[in-house]
Structure formats: C-alpha cells, structure tokens
Simulated assay, not measured.
Amino acid sequence: MGFEPIAVVGRGCVLPDALDPDTFWDNVAARRCSLSAVPEERWRLPHRWALGTVDDHRDRTWTDIGGYVRGFEAVFDPSGLLVDPERILTLDPLFHWVLYGARQALGESGYEGPRERAGLVLGNLCYPTSTGSAYAEHVWLSAQEPHVRDALLTGARRARPDARNRFS
C-alpha cells in the first residue's frame, strides 16, 4: 500500500489560554497549566447544587475544574464567509471555533478560499457545550405538561435554540 506525501501548510486552534498555535506552543514550552474553575456564568444553577463529591456525584459533578476557552468573543469575526454572519452567531461557539481555526490555517498557508486538494483535521473535547445543553433542555421541557413547560420555559428560554446546535 502506498501513500501520497502530504504537507501541513497551515495551523489554527482555539484552546484554553491559546487562541492561536504560537501561543499554544509558548504555553507548552513554559509548562503553563490552562485548567481553571468553571466560569461563573457557565452553569445555570448555583455551584453548590451542581457539585457533589467523588462518592456522591449522582446527578452532579465532583469537580468544577476544566479547560475553559476565554476571550474568544473578542477575536472572532463572522464576516467574510459564505454564510450570513447573523446566522453564524446563532450557532454554538464550537462552530465558531472551527471557522476561526480554519481561517487561521488558511491564512498561515498563504492561500485563500477552498483548495482542490486540501483537507482539514479537527479535534474536539468540548462536551457538553452550553448551547447544545440549552437545545436539549428546550426539547425536553417542550415535551412536559403545559403547566411545567410554561413555568420553566420563560423569557429568553422560550425561544427554541437553533436546531443545528444539536450537532457537535
């Protein structure tokens, strides 16, 4: 079996404490740990209700430490793509990260737009996403008895999140 040679001509990434490959490698070289406590706005319930212990974690988590991407909103520009920016902004940030990373890789390669013989390698360890969770919650609550559904689906939660957010 033969293999055609390949060339990596561009890189991009969105990681905790590194919104570009050079910053990521600087963090690795400096042995920097990018784990932190969950951002305050990430969970929709008080931390004391979400946190259990290693032995008592049923329907809870036993840690709030993770790798959380911060500051991405300040660098992401949804314009200049083949999809309307307003539509892109309805999608889970995970989609934004893919677009951002792909744009970085293309920029680093020196090419613009799609290439006939090009590929993209993606990795994702982002579960559950907050938008994906909101979508699942809306579907579940919508199927409840009207008095329960109407009591819990209030305000901004009443609008169904973009169904494409179920794919990550």
Rank of each mutant, 00 (worst) to 15 (best):
Y135K: 08
G155L: 10
R164D: 09
C33N: 12
P78Y: 11
A7Q: 11
T61H: 08
S168W: 08
E4P: 06
P114K: 06
G71E: 12
P114G: 04
P146A: 07
R31Y: 05
L91S: 09
V69A: 08
G12R: 06
V98E: 07
L141W: 13
D92Y: 05
T131D: 14
Y100A: 07
A143N: 04
D56V: 13
G80Y: 13
P114A: 14
E86C: 00
L122G: 03
A151Q: 12
D20A: 06
E86V: 03
D77V: 02
S109K: 00
V148Q: 04
R115V: 10
S168T: 14
Q104I: 01
V9Q: 06
R117G: 06
P78L: 11
G101N: 12
A134G: 05
L122M: 11
P21N: 02
L106N: 00
L45I: 15
C126R: 08
R117I: 02
E108W: 02
L125I: 10
E4L: 13
F95M: 03
R42G: 12
D20G: 12
S168I: 10
E86G: 15
T63S: 15
D84H: 13
T23H: 09
E112G: 14
G2A: 07
A118W: 05
R31M: 06
A7H: 09
R31K: 14
A30K: 12
V9Y: 04
W49C: 05
R87D: 14
T63M: 00
P146Q: 04
W25F: 14
T131V: 09
Q144H: 07
Q144C: 13
I6S: 04
V139D: 07
P39K: 00
S34I: 04
D26H: 11
L152W: 06
A74L: 02
